[in-house]
């Protein structure tokens, strides 16, 4: 019972916005500790108040700097802000340098801002699960705006971005046929496009390409045509200086439209489907894999495959018959 009340105490602290307790819980979620999962079970019903914004785009596109400028913009409107910044884990050593925070350190002492760096770590679906759960923690802490900044590459990207209500895709000129390269993945779920570093050569061409691409879309869900916002130097009052406010306004407008047109439910459903997918993988696939590995059967399976005595599908069916009754 003592444990029970200790856990309730921690959850109360998180609801009151205690940074230490919240950041520890996020750590436990990343490390996949069972007690962290039980905390999510308890807080899940309280979640869903924050506006979650996903920021994605190629490495070096200026995502962190943009997030930093957006923090300032939201803080001026007295909104509390949480940021989850994802950086890659080295596949060779398992270590990571998490550097997104460098761009946001001027907000470190603002109690209305909570910035947390996450490493990709590389487990199947693990990152997306950790991000989704960390979003819940920030939500329960009372953060009104939560920004998720992703690495900008790979299929995991789409899963992670599915945790957000508004998706901002950051593009920069001069990176070749950018639109072609990412068309099929992230481009389709963009709610707002940013052409960052728009004072550079090629920005106009990128703008026209993007406009042409959007012109080919027969119908936009809820009538929302993703706006394209050009941003120059975010700290400059030069050509695109005011466009930071334009971006913040577009983000707020998008959310308003989701609520008004009753589309928020669709976004939450999208998020929930990802979550249940991950929870099932966690509850069903992980124990099976663990069991096969620990009992040494995985080695025998590998051997059978190497000798061509069977094939992966047949083995998977055998395992499924045995384990899923």
């Amino acid at each position: 019972m003592a444990e029970e009340s200790e856990e309730m105490d921690k959850l109360r602290k998180i609801r009151e916005g205690d940074v230490r307790t919240a950041s520890r819980l996020i750590r436990n979620l990343e490390d996949d500790l069972p007690e962290a999962k039980s905390a999510i079970k308890r807080i899940f019903a309280l979640t869903g108040r924050a506006h979650v914004i996903g920021i994605t785009g190629s490495p070096g596109a200026g995502k962190s700097t943009l997030v930093d400028a957006l923090i300032s913009s939201f803080r001026k409107k007295e909104k509390t802000v949480g940021v989850l910044a994802v950086d890659p884990t080295s596949p060779f050593t398992g270590g990571a340098i998490l550097g997104d925070r460098i761009r946001m350190q001027r907000h470190a002492e603002d109690p209305g801002v909570f910035v947390r760096s996450l490493a990709t770590r590389g487990a199947l679906g693990g990152l997306s699960k950790a991000v989704g759960d960390a979003v819940h923690v920030l939500d329960v802490m009372g953060k009104e705006i939560i920004m998720v900044e992703t690495v900008g590459t790979g299929q995991q990207e789409v899963e992670i971005i599915n945790h957000s209500h508004t998706v901002v895709v950051v593009l920069v000129p001069g990176m070749g046929d950018e639109i072609q390269a990412i068309k099929a993945g992230i481009m389709e779920i963009a709610d707002i496009f940013v052409i960052n570093k728009a004072d550079r050569d090629g920005a106009t061409q990128l703008y026209s390409e993007l406009t042409a691409m959007l012109n080919m879309v027969p119908e936009f869900t809820g009538g929302w045509r993703p706006p394209i916002i050009r941003i120059g130097n975010v700290f400059d009052s030069g050509p695109f200086g005011e466009s930071m406010e334009e971006l913040a306004a577009a983000i707020a407008e998008h959310y308003r439209r989701l609520v008004e047109k009753d589309l928020l439910g669709d976004r939450i459903r999208r998020k929930t489907l990802v979550e249940i997918n991950e929870a099932l993988r966690d509850a069903i696939l992980e124990p099976i894999l663990k069991d096969l590995t620990e009992s040494g059967e995985m080695d025998r399976i590998a051997g059978r495959l190497l000798r061509k005595e069977s094939d992966p599908y047949t083995i998977a069916e055998e395992v499924a018959r045995r384990c899923l009754k």
Partner: peptide, 16 residues
């Protein structure tokens, strides 16, 4: 040092 810690398998937050 940040790089060396990464290579040792730690997660390093560098703040500039």
């Amino acid at each position: 040092l940040a790089r060396c810690f990464r290579d040792a398998g730690f997660e390093v937050i560098y703040t500039g």
